[in-house]
Design a protein around this nucleic acid. Structure first.
Length: 892
RNA sequence: GGGCCAUUGGCUCAGUUGGUUAGAGCGCCACGUUGACAUCGUGGAGGUCAGUGGUUCGAAUCCACUAUGGCCCA
């Protein structure tokens, strides 16, 4: 295959992905290879309604890098994909569509027909986001794709529900819950968001019973709820109201007498210091009411309109009732005043409507007991967070966890597995029962199933093991559970991570307690912000579509850029232009590989070992040894940015800028040096592609195949299956690194002179190099040809000591003077400036160093090696400064 | 209201346990194109590390406070 001069991702991505799929590359072997340890990642299942956003792309890239690294290393690697049925979100999407297209509501269709519509929609659109993950290169085992409402996962939900119910950890009761009046369902604490809004604080006058002309003024942001008041509370120490405690006020409109109670929870400084108590519609009042035995009155229907308790306002919407109540109180002279305030309003995450606290019958999970092992898990090291600070967030939530309202008044979801006979006796069953079946306990016919469905998290908390076959003790469960790594966004720590840990400990009883934690590492990835530092969101319209970025820059470039940009979960500001870095890099890799292979055609070298006959061969192999080790360590520790940076430097700076340039002159021949250069190029490219593969899988797979062909090794498999470079045959070579270091210094010095004196690139220059150290002279003398090539020199004279030749410019590098012969008319002003600047800098550095070395405190306290190192540095700096000053004089 | 994070050259970010003459990429300036790559090469300019105080022989790095921006939770 002819490689094009530019890397074109469109040409390869789809084809490469198809090859992986056809080879079953992502599916673990039917049986775990002998000695191979498992490594499992469970994808955080995206909503079936979802489309890929940048957060998914980042998270997907991270998981893919981890699993590819492990797979190449020979682990029994599984990355299991799937989607979440997302109860409210999905139902809302389909309801909206149904209404828009047919003008019907779900009630018009009825439960079964509506669910049919949702399934239809799911089959049609539910795989979109998984398709998008493929575009990113995600190496999930698609043969194990799961959906939270699959029959086996649904059964797992029923089994888990019944287990908790039988243990008394699930109960049913009337409680104040967060009610979404638009979607008409209860929602959990975690589905609420808060918005700071400007509002009003109405001061209402309640007439005190039997004390004409005396009023108790209460302040409220929700005046319509006064219809549900069953008391008024003041602080016990509040002198303004002391004499009123124990008396009553008469509720306007309704004439209900309600008591005045003293309660510590009242803030005397807020409003008037007297608060109306509405246990049916406010969580704080619910508790106050309970303390003082106040009745609970619910004034709202499920749709947010006022019921009969609303008296003259019955039938109005809550908004209308508010206006009317205020207006009529004013007419009655019972409105004291109105203040403007800003306060936090609770909104439903899904419908964005104002949450109404409402008392209703719901199912709850007792969380305290379940939380205990999850709390212990981080203490005993079973679970680690990366970065570690998220541990605190996790623990805070668990330690203050409230009972979990798991019932939802929806149709789309797992229906609660409780059936009733005609007497209302409940019975649970893991298998679905039919109406008319005999009730398991009473034997009477079943007349109905509980109408509610479960919160989506009540299925996704089972994800790490239900996807592997739980509650059955399957081979997959034994083989792949517990998992090793999970990657998620921070706001999911409580919603999902904490619950999965609880569920793991509670349900996976085929394992000893110590082995039940569903994952060992929870990686909390960065939040992707827009170019201005704001969170990307659909509503703000500031999102960047990853698929559009993949189209424009290529999947590899997108992945690489994301890794270069995000350091250890530090938030990242992202703009489309940031992907150019990745594109440039993938192009660079492409061309480096292209160059190597152009020079390898027909060469018979297996690329696995390289005969290093020249110092640059030893040097690049030494750099490769270091880079391999850095990348491997970084990936093992999940430091993706470090690995990406190390690879970038190696590929671009070491390999392309220096080694390839040094090798160019040797490749023409057929001698040992040429052969060694080819062998080294092949070896380095080979390992480089493998090390890059987790980051840029598409491109490296293409190049790997091409390299195999060029080397005549058609038998080797795809890179996706490894091998991961072990570093075999590679060693750090300090001597070679030092020698090339000297060479680099000299080359840079000449180039700098050339640029600063404007002599141009064309002219080959004559140089005199003065190197007092014998080892430096040795390097330079043996590298004259290299210097001639890299710095475009004509002659190179090397001396231990010499005067500056006439008409020459000078550069100083690491104790070495490089004199470049120039014509008389050459302008050395810029060069002098640069030398002067460097001399200044050296002088400042030296000053600081001398001060430090004269400091008794430093000499007494610092480690001896440190003092010694500073002395060496001082000597070097002194020498450099002397050279700079000497040459500066000569130039001016 | 509680918690967390950030503040380093024009922009985006590195800087491991305190000791560097404070780094990188982009952008900018200058020069360069008969072949790996102009999605390129070479050289250069540019920062008293948000502020104040403290700890220390020594602080971009540790502590406290302040300011600004952001995120999560209530």
């Amino acid at each position: 295959m002819e490689l094009s001069p530019r890397y074109d991702p469109h040409e390869h991505e789809a084809a490469v992905y198809t090859r992986w799929l056809e080879a079953g590359s992502f599916t673990p072997a039917a049986e775990a290879p002998k000695g191979a340890e498992p490594f499992t990642i469970m994808i955080p299942p995206p909503n079936v309604t979802g489309v890929l956003h940048m957060g998914h792309a980042l998270n997907g890239a991270i998981q893919d890098i981890v699993i590819r690294h492990k797979r190449m290393q020979g682990f029994d690697a599984l990355w299991l994909p799937g989607t979440d049925h997302a109860g409210i979100a999905t139902q809302a999407v389909v309801e909206k569509k149904l209404y828009a297209e047919e003008g019907k509501t779900r009630q018009d269709l009825g439960r079964d027909a509506f669910l049919g519509k949702v399934w239809e929609w799911k089959e049609l659109h539910g795989n979109q986001i998984l398709e998008q993950y493929r575009r990113l290169g995600a190496s999930c085992d698609w043969s194990r794709t799961k959906f939270t409402m699959d029959e086996d996962l649904s059964r797992a939900v029923r089994v888990s529900f019944l287990a908790l119910w039988e243990k008394g950890l699930i109960y049913r009761g009337a409680r104040l819950v967060h009610w979404d009046c638009v979607l008409q369902t209860a929602i959990s604490d975690d589905e609420i968001e808060y918005e700071t809004r400007k509002g009003k604080l109405w001061h209402l006058k309640y007439p005190v019973k039997d004390q004409p002309e005396r009023f108790l003024v209460v302040a409220t942001t929700r005046p319509e709820t006064m219809l549900g008041d069953t008391g008024v509370a003041v602080h016990p120490d509040d002198e303004r109201y002391g004499d009123l405690v124990g008396k009553s006020v008469v509720l306007p409109f309704l004439g209900r007498e309600i008591p005045i109670v003293a309660d510590e929870s009242v803030d005397p400084a807020f409003g008037t210091g007297a608060v109306k108590v509405t246990p049916g519609h406010d969580p704080a009042d619910y508790e106050r009411g309970a303390r003082h035995n106040l009745p609970i009155i619910s004034i709202l229907e499920k749709d947010g309109t006022l019921n009969a308790e609303g008296g003259p306002f019955a039938g109005m919407s809550r908004e209308k009732a508010r206006t009317e109540v205020v207006k009529q109180l004013e007419e009655l002279g019972l409105l004291d005043k109105v203040e403007s305030i800003t306060h936090n309003v609770s909104l439903s995450d899904r419908s964005k409507s104002v949450i109404e606290p409402l008392v209703s019958e719901q199912w709850f999970v007792r969380m305290k007991e379940l939380a205990e092992p999850a709390i212990a898990a981080v203490g005993n090291g079973s679970l680690t967070f990366r970065p570690e600070r998220w541990k605190k967030v996790y623990l805070d939530w668990l330690e203050n966890v409230q009972d979990w309202c798991i019932s939802r008044q929806l149709w789309w979801g797992h229906r609660i597995p409780i059936w009733y006979d005609e007497d209302g006796v409940p019975a649970g069953s893991a298998d679905e029962l039919q109406l008319g079946d005999a009730h398991p306990k009473t034997g009477k016919p079943i007349v109905r199933q509980d109408a509610d469905v479960l919160d989506t998290w009540a299925s996704s908390w089972l994800w790490p093991f239900a996807t592997l076959g739980w509650p059955d003790d399957t081979a997959d469960l034994r083989r792949f559970y517990p998992t090793q790594f999970i990657s998620t966004a921070r706001e999911i720590i409580y919603l999902w991570i904490a619950r999965m840990v609880m569920a793991g400990y509670e349900f996976v009883d085929s394992l000893p307690e110590a082995e039940r934690c569903p994952f060992t590492t929870c990686y909390v990835h960065a939040t992707v912000l827009d170019g201005k530092g704001k969170r990307m969101s659909k509503s703000a319209g500031n999102g960047i579509d990853p698929i559009a970025m993949i189209e424009e820059f290529g999947a590899d470039a997108v992945r690489y850029s994301l890794m270069m940009l995000t350091r250890e979960g530090q938030d990242v500001k992202l703009a489309p232009a940031r992907f150019e870095e990745g594109r440039r890099f993938t192009n660079k890799i492409w061309n480096a590989a292209r160059f190597v292979m152009m020079n390898l055609e027909g060469e018979r070298t297996d690329g696995s070992s390289a005969a290093a006959v020249e110092v640059e061969d030893r040097w690049i192999l030494s750099r490769l040894a270091r880079t391999r080790s850095e990348v491997h360590t970084a990936l093992t520790d999940y430091h993706f940015n470090d690995a990406a940076t190390a690879l970038y430097r190696f590929v671009w700076n070491d390999f392309c800028d220096w080694y390839v340039e040094l090798a160019k002159g040797r490749l023409a021949g057929e001698d040992d040096s040429a052969k060694a250069a080819r062998g080294t190029l092949a070896r380095v490219l080979n390992d480089m592609l493998a090390l890059l593969h987790p980051f840029t899988p598409f491109q490296t797979e293409v190049l790997w195949a091409e390299l195999g062909r060029v080397l005549g090794d058609g038998e080797r498999g795809m890179l996706v299956r490894g091998p991961w470079p072990t570093g075999e045959g590679l060693a750090v070579d300090e001597a070679a690194e030092a020698r090339i270091g000297v060479l680099q210094e000299v080359v840079r010095a000449v180039r700098s002179v050339r640029a600063l004196t404007m002599v141009g690139e064309r002219k080959a220059l004559d140089t005199v190099i003065v190197a007092p150290r014998a080892e430096d002279r040795d390097v330079i003398e043996s590298s004259v040809e290299r210097l001639r090539g890299l710095a475009h020199l004509e002659t190179v004279e090397v001396h231990a000591a010499a005067e500056r030749p006439p008409s020459s410019a000078a550069a100083v590098a690491g104790g070495i003077e490089v004199f470049v012969r120039l014509g008389e008319d050459v302008d050395t002003a810029k060069l002098s400036e640069t030398l002067a600047r460097r001399a200044d800098k050296a002088r400042k550095g030296l000053e600081a160093l001398s001060k430090k070395l004269a400091n008794q405190g430093f000499l007494a306290n610092a480690e001896p090696e440190m003092v010694e190192a500073e002395k060496v540095k001082q000597e070097e700096l002194e020498q450099e400064l002397a050279l700079l000053e000497r040459n500066l004089e000569g130039l001016s």
